[in-house]
Structures are given as C-alpha cells and as structure tokens.
C-alpha cells in the first residue's frame, strides 16, 4: 500500500507530465506539414521526415521537456510531507525509512520509464496518418537513452528533495544544476569525457549517431548507459541513507 500512497502523491504531476509530453509528440507528428513549412521559411530545409522528428522530438524540444518533467517528478517525499504536517503519520507506519525512500524512487523511475515510452507509441503510431513512417527501432533506442538519463536527472532532483527543507529550494537548486551542468560539461578539460547528457541523449558528435540522416547508427554507448544507471542508483541510495539519518 505504500505504492498506492506514493502514486497518489504524485499522480497529478505524472498525469500532467504525460499529457504535456504526449501533446508535444502528437502535435509534432500531426501538424508536421505546418511546422515543416515554418521551419522551411526560417532555417535550412530539412532533408527528411526523420530529420524533422529528430529536431522536434528526439534531438530538441520534447527531450528537453522530458528532462524537466523528470526533474519535477523527483521532488516531493518526506520534506514535502513536513510542510503538510503528515510526517508524523507516515513515520509512525511500521515501515523503515529505507523502504519509504525506495518505494518513492521506484514509483518515480517507473513513471520516467512510462514517459519515455510515450514517443515510442506516438511517433511510429501516428506517422502513417500524415503519410510518413518512422522506424520503431529508432524510437526504442532513443527511449533507452531517455530513460537512462531521465533517471539520472530524476535521482538528482530526488536527492535534493531529501536535502532541502523547502520544496521550492529543492526545485530551484535542481533547475540551477540542470542548466549549469551542461555548461560545465562543455569546458575544454571535460570535453573528451562522455559527461554532456544532452549530447549523449541526442547523439551530437557521437559515433552512434549519423547527423546526415538524423538516425542512430551502430551500437549504443552501453558503458555510458550503465554508468547512468549506476549514478542513479548511487544518488537514490545516498538519499535513502540521508533519510535514515534525518531527525524528524
């Protein structure tokens, strides 16, 4: 039943996130002609439908939105309950704090997974309506990239939600880190390392991405993905340890 409570706590956030992301994907596919005409007028012509999808969804706007949503989903938890005065009730339940944290992380990560699968359903599913097609395998591979790094962003926000007493400071700090981090990752001494999550996710300058076709080619960077999973696990574990030690 802890799952139920956790789900109820961020049900609304998740549904809004899902709605926003589906809206972006659906609009991008269904109004493809209109958007492409606009793009045509303002910038260099797009070579293909895949290029258009990459621009709207996997490369840019939708992906960025997804990460912000992942960040928002990471907030909440006991600190938020403190503001609502229900910590006493939650902490009296005969469950350990570790379990409280674990269940919240698990529900959040499941939601990240669900969000990242939305384009997999929507993009290849809706493309035939506009007389186009988009390969499912491409969508799946991009989703894998999304879910790995969405989890990292989620876990970072999750940790900040445990550390900061106010939910607003947790949000502010997470957002600040979210926007400053890519700048740091682009500093010359760090450039050789696979640290820039935006570039890893959209393949900019990566061997597994072909910028001419805007499609993923070759094997995904499995070690980097494994690293993302490990970082997620470490952040969540640290959050659990902190929660266990907290006084309230």
């Amino acid at each position: 039943m802890l799952w139920y409570k956790t789900w109820r706590e961020n049900e609304l956030r998740f549904l809004i996130s899902a709605l926003v992301l589906s809206g972006i994907c659906t609009a991008a596919v269904l109004f493809e002609r209109m958007f492409r005409a606009q793009l045509h007028a303002t910038s260099a012509p797009l070579s293909s439908y895949a290029g258009y999808i990459y621009l709207r969804i996997y490369g840019g706007f939708a992906r960025g939105t997804f990460l912000v949503l992942a960040l928002v989903l990471g907030l909440g938890g006991l600190q938020r309950e403190r503001a609502h005065g229900s910590t006493g009730f939650t902490l009296m339940l005969p469950v350990s704090r570790g379990r409280l944290t674990g269940v919240r992380a698990a529900v959040g990560l499941a939601e990240i997974l669900a969000l990242s699968l939305l384009p997999v359903i929507l993009v290849p599913g809706l493309s035939p309506f506009v007389g186009e097609s988009y390969p499912l395998s491409q969508s799946l591979q991009f989703s894998l990239l999304w879910v790995s790094f969405g989890s990292v962003v989620f876990a970072a926000a999750f940790l900040s939600s445990v550390i900061f007493t106010s939910e607003y400071s947790a949000l502010a700090v997470s957002l600040a880190v979210f926007f400053i981090y890519p700048l740091v990752a682009r500093l010359p001494p760090l450039r050789p390392y696979p640290l820039h999550i935006h570039y890893i996710m959209n393949g900019t300058g990566m061997a597994y991405f072909d910028p001419r076709t805007d499609l993923l080619v070759g094997p995904l960077p499995w070690t980097v993905l494994a690293g993302a999973v490990a970082i997620t696990a470490a952040l969540v574990a640290y959050a659990a340890v902190l929660t266990e030690r907290q006084d309230f």
Binding site: R8, G85, F89
Partner: peptide, 8 residues
C-alpha cells in the same frame, strides 16, 4: 497537527 493524507 493530526496530519493525515489530505488527498485521500
């Protein structure tokens, strides 16, 4: 505070 889950 008798704080319970307001949303339930």
């Amino acid at each position: 505070e008798k704080g319970l889950y307001a949303y339930m």
